[in-house]
Nucleic acid binder design. Structure first.
Length: 547
RNA sequence: GCGCCCGUAGCUCAGUGGAGUAGAGCAGCAGACUUCGGAUCUGCCGGUCGGGGGUUCGAAUCCCUCCGGGCGCGCCA
């Protein structure tokens, strides 16, 4: 956006010279290098066998441009081409941003494409814990980013409500139920779920059934299980709701069995000679697929291991026709995902459409030392507790602010700070401040229709810096979406907020010298507000009008 | 031992399809509006980019190797 015109004249010159290259224009790090720079001459040097500066000279000589928009084009250093813009250039850029209104930053680049994003995927055996926060924040922001560049996105939650874990849940609930009825019933300390929520579920069963479940039968355990699942899912969904997260599809692992997908997958693998029997179990020869060892897919008990349904599930996801299938997993899944993708690829699916966002673990820090989140009662600390303590906005921002592959250090001191240094408030404050200016303007009766005359803008460095920062937004969103990296937006928003605060400090908006300048600066503040609001939205953070 | 990820300022992190003087935030220090929100702004301090080789006119970035940290390596999920 910011480089559109510069790009245009550069392209023109390149093609005039008959050169084969896709020139990139970038923001120079140092102000003395101008407003836009390209290293295209350096890139061409090797291929053309000419000194980069000579090439640069040819390109610059071939560039035709409007002197009202561009002040100078210079060659510097080893052969960089630097350009300096005039105020008119900035006014033009702001105009184009204004024309896009509230949608500024969003694009249709990937319109018509479909994406599926799987995240959270916690089994319904208890409330979400703090560590789930990172998966949730990353997955949901990635879904929002993909939508922002035009994808039609399905948010999917994969869960297992059968198998060992649910059996343990049922037994745990049943044990607590009996204990609450006054019976001396043993609790399986090793496999059981010890959280106090199990008592809550048991109490609900008592309220509902009284003592009628006392007899230890399959039916009664099934009731415990169903109740447990229902309770846990309600808890999970309530927590997700607080974070502004909603899924479109809840995919039940169990359906893979009833639909025959499990058997079909084994059969297909078998046809390709990848399956064999050993020690009473069924194995997949992942060594034939380049991995270091074979794995069991069906235990000698006849139950599949977790990786078999994972394989079947990915086959299903890939056969739906989505252009992009994103898996958001914790680093502890690294081994699994390799096996699953290897198998699915061997079955002929195009696994290049699968992008796995593998995030590292989270360490909570307090007073400079690793901190184990806990409650005074000794009870498990949940994600809900964290939201209660910090607020949903802070939780979402902190979990999304770093690249997935870093081991996230969650600084509780910083997160708890309700002011100043907390990066979330810095962004929200900038937004609230702009809203406040607009509220004041309304009170003063300052108003203008449509798009004001912007030619008075671009004479103050702070205005230029802000326009320059705002104009990066569409490219930032696109890059963040392509890299599935929400932190890029978080970083960027900070530079926008900073540019705005500086502008605010140095340039009067409502008190500007002329009405024309008042209107133009309000328009500039307005675009800033759109960028902050849209950017925060991509992170799932609210943009408050006042704080 | 094997696989994946990470190692950049006191701390937390950007930058890693090679390029102009390695950047932010926090912490520290020094300052700033009688006017739109001081939850703000300006400046300073601070780095042998984990070590060592190599490729290159040019390497934090690419290759090799070593060291350090994390996560995995179940007929658990």
């Amino acid at each position: 956006m910011f480089f559109d015109y510069a790009q245009e004249i550069l392209h023109h010159a390149i093609s005039k010279l008959g050169l084969q290259v896709q020139p990139e224009i970038e923001l120079p790090r140092h102000p003395q290098h101008g407003d836009a720079a390209t290293n295209v001459a350096l890139q061409l040097a090797r291929a053309l066998g000419k000194p980069p500066r000579t090439i640069a000279e040819d390109i610059v000589a071939a560039m035709e441009y409007d002197r009202e928009r561009i002040a100078a084009i210079e060659i510097a250093g080893p052969g960089f081409i630097n350009m300096r813009f005039r105020p008119r250039y900035y006014a033009d850029v702001l105009l184009r941003m204004l024309e896009q209104g509230e949608r500024f930053g969003y694009s249709a680049r990937y319109a018509g494409k479909r994406a599926n994003v799987e995240y959270v995927s916690a089994n319904p055996t208890g409330p979400l814990h703090p560590g789930h926060g990172r998966n949730i924040a990353l997955g949901d922001s990635i879904a929002r980013l993909l939508e922002a560049v035009g994808y039609t996105v399905t948010r999917e939650y994969y869960f297992n409500n059968a198998g060992r874990q649910m059996y343990n849940l049922a037994r745990s609930i049943y044990a607590r139920y009996r204990q609450l009825l006054g019976d001396d019933y043993p609790f399986d300390e090793e496999n059981g779920y010890r959280g106090s929520y199990i008592y809550d579920i048991a109490r609900e069963l008592i309220a509902e059934y009284g003592e009628r479940l006392r007899e230890e039968t399959e039916e009664n355990l099934a009731i415990c299980r169903a109740k447990g699942e229902q309770w846990c899912f309600a808890s999970i969904r309530r927590t997700l709701e607080r974070l502004g997260v909603h899924h479109d599809v809840y995919f039940n692992e169990h359906s893979l069995y009833t639909d025959g997908h499990i058997e079909r997958t084994v059969e297909q693998l078998r046809q390709r000679g990848l399956v064999y029997e050993k020690d009473g179990a069924t194995w997949i020869a992942t060594t034939k697929l380049g991995l270091d060892q074979d794995r069991v897919i069906i235990k000698s008990t006849g139950e599949p291991t977790y990786r078999l349904p994972d394989m079947a599930y990915h086959c299903i996801k890939l056969s739906r026709g989505d252009d992009l299938v994103v898996d958001v997993f914790g680093a502890d899944h690294i081994a699994t995902i390799q096996e699953v993708l290897a198998a699915v690829k061997a079955l002929g699916y195009d696994t290049s459409r699968v992008k796995v966002v593998l995030h590292q673990m989270v360490t909570f820090m307090k007073d400079g030392a690793p901190y184990k989140l806990s409650k005074r009662s000794g009870e498990q600390y949940t994600l809900d507790d964290l939201i209660e303590e910090l607020g949903a906005d802070v939780v979402r921002y902190f979990f999304a602010m770093r690249a997935a592959e870093t081991q996230l250090v969650f600084d509780l001191n910083l997160a708890r700070e309700q002011s100043e240094n907390n990066p979330v408030f810095y962004l929200q404050y900038a937004h609230a401040r702009i809203c406040s200016v607009f509220a004041n303007a309304q009170q003063l009766g300052v108003c203008f229709d449509g798009i004001p005359d912007l030619r008075v803008l671009g004479h103050h460095p702070a205005e230029c810096a802000l326009i320059k920062a705002l104009a990066q937004f569409p490219a930032i969103v696109e890059r963040a979406a392509e890299q599935l990296a929400p932190y890029i937006v978080a970083d960027y928003l900070h530079t926008v907020a900073e540019a705005f605060h500086t502008f605010y400090h140095e340039c009067r908006i409502l008190g500007a010298e002329t009405n024309q300048l008042v209107h133009a600066r309000m328009a500039l503040a307005g675009v800033t507000r759109v960028v902050l609001r849209n950017g925060l939205h991509l992170l799932g953070v609210h943009a408050p009008e006042r704080m």
